[in-house]
Simulated scan of single mutants.
Amino acid sequence: MHPVLKGIRLVGFDLDGTLVDSVPDLTVAVDTVLSECNLPPQGENRVRDWVGNGSLMLVERALTRALGKTPQASLLESSHARFLEEYGQSPTARTCLYAGVRETLDALRERGYELVVITNKPHALIEPILSNFALSDHFGLCLGGDSLPQKKPDPAPLLYAARHFEVSPEACLMVGDSRHDIEAGRRAGFRTLAVPYGYNHGEPVSDSGPDAMVESLRELI
């Protein structure tokens, strides 16, 4: 067992960029919306750097880049609604689990850890992804970016999860790929663990100062 798990009872996981590589499906939805607006596609490399602050911000970043200016509120609203529709129709066609995820979640569940998904993705999109990979039963709670008034890097979702399972923050670990995960964990009083393979706006997640890093989640077990 990795030392970062010593004394830990609850493990919170980010979703996109930590458990699954969802950028291919997100890109298809983003570029479809842009095409319908007669705007140029942005492609996976750019979308990869835009993920992490929720779907509305993702669409806003794509529109801003394609337009060369901040989009009008009406365009952003309609484009975001269209994005959710398009992405919701096929959120797992190209999405895959990162190496080591399934065996790690299996092992942690067998050892009695409370497992939680804490993501900025809309809550309605979490279950289709987990179900596609037969992982729904691994998690006792799933929180999306719209589950509470606040989302990461605000610590509120993490603290909600700790209260839900009656676990003190000091006995909780937040696992993620971005500075938002590490900041939320630090502010909540959680221990933090980062993976370097996800999405962090083109910056090394190590710069955020996590308590520990692993190249693969397999290192936890």
Rank of each mutant, 00 (worst) to 15 (best):
E114H: 14
D21H: 14
P196F: 00
R65F: 15
S74L: 10
N38C: 08
D207F: 15
R163M: 02
V4L: 10
T27A: 11
P128H: 06
M57T: 14
A161N: 04
G68Y: 03
V205W: 00
A184N: 14
P155N: 03
L115H: 06
L58A: 09
L34H: 09
V47D: 05
T104C: 09
P128K: 12
L193I: 14
A134W: 00
L5A: 07
I182W: 09
V4C: 11
V101T: 03
W50P: 00
G202R: 14
H2Y: 12
G112R: 07
M213F: 11
G176H: 09
V101A: 04
N200K: 06
E86W: 08
Y98H: 04
V23Q: 06
S136M: 09
E203K: 15
S216W: 11
G54I: 09
A66Y: 05
M57E: 15
H201M: 12
V30S: 09
L148D: 02
C172E: 08
Y87N: 07
E215G: 10
L75D: 10
L34D: 12
H2Q: 09
T192K: 05
C172N: 13
L67K: 10
P169C: 14
E219N: 10
A93V: 10
R46Q: 14
L173P: 15
P196E: 00
P149L: 05
E85F: 08
V47I: 11
N200V: 10
V117Q: 06
F83R: 02
T64G: 01
P155H: 02
I118K: 11
L159D: 14
S22Q: 08
K151P: 15
V33E: 15
V195Y: 07
D146E: 13
I8M: 04
E219M: 08
S78W: 03
R9W: 07
V175W: 01
I8Y: 07
H180S: 02
L63P: 00
D25Q: 07
N38E: 09
D181E: 01
I129M: 10
E170F: 11
L10A: 01
F190K: 04
G88L: 03
T32L: 09
F83N: 14
E166H: 13
G144P: 02
G209Y: 12
L97Q: 05
L125A: 12
R61P: 00
D177G: 02
E60D: 05
I126M: 06
G54Y: 15
V59N: 07
H2N: 12
A66R: 14
P41N: 00
P40V: 05
R111P: 08
R82V: 06
T119W: 05
L125R: 08
H180W: 13
N38T: 11
N53M: 05
L130Q: 06
L115W: 02
A93E: 07
R179G: 15
A107Q: 03
D177T: 05
L84H: 02
P40G: 07
D211P: 03
G209P: 15
I126V: 04
V11Y: 08
P40I: 04
A81E: 13
A66Q: 13
R218Y: 04
E60V: 03
R187C: 13
G54K: 01
H180C: 04
L193Y: 00
